[in-house]
């Protein structure tokens, strides 16, 4: 890879990895289901940033944009259904705490 292109890509790559670490840490260590969704959202943002940066560096920004638009549509649908599931869990269990969801235990 061209060193100039790598010089553009690598700072974005470092921050993309940092954003992924924040999202994974949030998903692993939180007990609140809404915060799990926020962690998932951060991970999706990191993936979006990666796709756009690679498209920019390769000179294929139009294809990257088309892919990002598809990502955003899928992201919204996933979040809407996940929020519905979270609200259903809350109405069944009375809590958003994952430690109190024991219906499928065993």
């Amino acid at each position: 890879m061209n060193p100039q292109v790598l010089g553009i890509f690598w700072p974005f790559g470092v921050f993309m990895i940092m954003l992924s670490v924040i999202g994974i840490y949030c998903m692993l260590l939180t007990y609140n289901l809404v915060r799990v969704l926020i962690g998932l959202e951060l991970l999706i943002k990191a993936a979006t940033l990666l796709v756009l940066t690679v498209g920019y560096c390769n000179g294929h920004i139009a294809q990257a944009q088309a892919l990002v638009v598809t990502f955003i549509v899928i992201e919204v649908v996933v979040m809407t259904v996940a929020v519905g599931v979270v609200l259903g869990i809350r109405s069944h269990n009375g809590s958003l705490d994952v430690r109190k969801i024991r219906n499928l235990k065993g």
Binding site: T48, L52, G55, Q65, V68
Partner: peptide, 10 residues
Amino acid sequence: LNAPLAAVFE
């Protein structure tokens, strides 16, 4: 990053 349409969507 020259991606205005994706930015508007975001």
